[in-house]
Write a protein that binds this DNA or RNA. Structure first.
Lengths: 158, 158
DNA sequence: CTTTTTCCTACCGGAATAGTAGGAATTTCG
DNA sequence: CGAAATTCCTACTATTCCGGTAGGAAAAAG
C-alpha cells in the first residue's frame, strides 16, 4: 500500500501538472519558463485540503528527488522540472516510499542480498521478480501526465 | 514490500509443498490423506532457520485462513488443505499482509472509500487499478506449486 | 525592511512490526 | 495410565515506522 506521503504527493502533482499544461497552452511567449509561474503550497492546499506543514516536507522530498524545482520568496512556489510525460510514477514512489519490489532481493534500485537463500534457485525470488516486472510495466510507462487525463477525452498526443 | 511474516510463510509453505508432492508420488495407497503425514514446526525450522514461536503464529494464521490443516499431538504438524496448484499466492499475502492493492479505494478484498475524491474521475484511482490488476495477474495465476519448481526442469503438467 | 515564501532541524504520539512468554489442550505411545 | 510431543491460545514487549507538528532560518520581492 502507498503511504499517505505518496498519496498526497500524487494529488499535489496533479495540480502542478495542470498548472504546467495551462501555462504551455496559454503562454504567448514560447520561451516562457516554468519557474516564472510556480505554484505555492498554500494554493495546493486550497485545492487538496491537507496539512500544510506535511505537504511541505513532501514537496521538499520531491525537489531533492529531482522532480520539482522551487522558487523562494513572494510569488514563489514549486514547478515541474520536466514535461509531465517524462516523470514516471515509479520515480515518485521510490522517492517517498522506497522500493517498489516486494522483496529487497529483487529490487532494482534498493537491492539487498537475502540471507539463507540462493537467489539462483529460490522459487520465491523468481516469482517476486515477476511481480516486480508486472508493477514496473505500469509504473515506468505511466507518467505524471496520466494523472491529469480526463478519462472521457480522446488520447492526448504530445 | 512483503512483511517478514509473509516471507517466512512462503519459505515454510515451500517445504510443505515438497512434502505434499513427495507423499503423492511415493504413496502406494491412492487414498492416503495429507493429514496422515503432517510436517511439524520443528522440522520446518530445521530446513529454514527462524524463530519457532514466530513461525507458530504464522502457521496458525494460515490455518485460520484455510490454507493449512493441522494435527495435534505426537507425530502431528501441518499439511496443505488443497493441491498446491489451487492456492494462489495472493491468498497467502492477503492473510498475512492484508491488501494487495496500492490504495484502499482500489482494493477488491479490503475496499474502503477514499474521502475527498470522486473515484469516477480520479486519475490516481484509475492508474492504481491498473497496478492492482498487473499484480493480480501474477499473484492469482501463480500458486504454491510454483514455489517448489526447479527452474531448469521442464514445465510440470498436472 | 516587511511580507511571503521555501528550507531546515528537531521532535512526538500512536500504530504496526517482529517477535517472546507461559501455559492449556490434544494426541501418541510405552 | 502417564509421559512426551505437538498444536493452540492469550497476553506481553521492544523497536521501528508513519503521520504529523513546532519553530525558526534563509531568500526573494516590492
Amino acid at each position: 500500500m502507498l503511504s499517505k506521503k505518496a498519496q498526497y504527493a500524487f494529488r499535489a502533482l496533479g495540480t502542478l501538472v495542470r498548472a504546467d499544461l495551462a501555462r504551455r497552452s496559454q503562454e504567448s511567449d514560447v520561451d516562457a519558463a516554468a519557474s516564472d509561474t510556480p505554484t505555492s503550497i498554500t494554493e495546493i492546499v486550497k485545492v487538496h485540503p491537507m496539512s500544510t506543514k506535511f505537504l511541505e516536507t513532501i514537496l521538499l522530498d520531491l525537489k531533492r528527488g529531482g522532480i520539482l524545482g522551487s522558487k523562494k520568496g513572494k510569488g514563489g512556489g514549486y514547478y515541474l522540472m520536466k514535461h509531465p510525460e517524462d516523470t514516471p510514477l515509479a520515480q515518485v514512489i521510490r522517492i517517498l516510499d522506497g522500493p517498489i519490489a516486494p522483496l529487497p532481493c529483487v529490487s532494482l534500485h534498493f537491492y539487498e542480498r537475502c540471507v539463507d537463500c540462493n537467489e539462483a534457485v529460490c522459487g520465491l525470488n523468481r516469482l517476486m521478480s515477476e511481480v516486480r516486472d508486472a508493477n514496473l510495466a505500469v509504473l515506468e510507462q505511466r507518467s505524471l501526465a496520466d494523472l491529469a487525463v480526463d478519462p472521457d477525452a480522446p488520447v492526448a498526443k504530445r
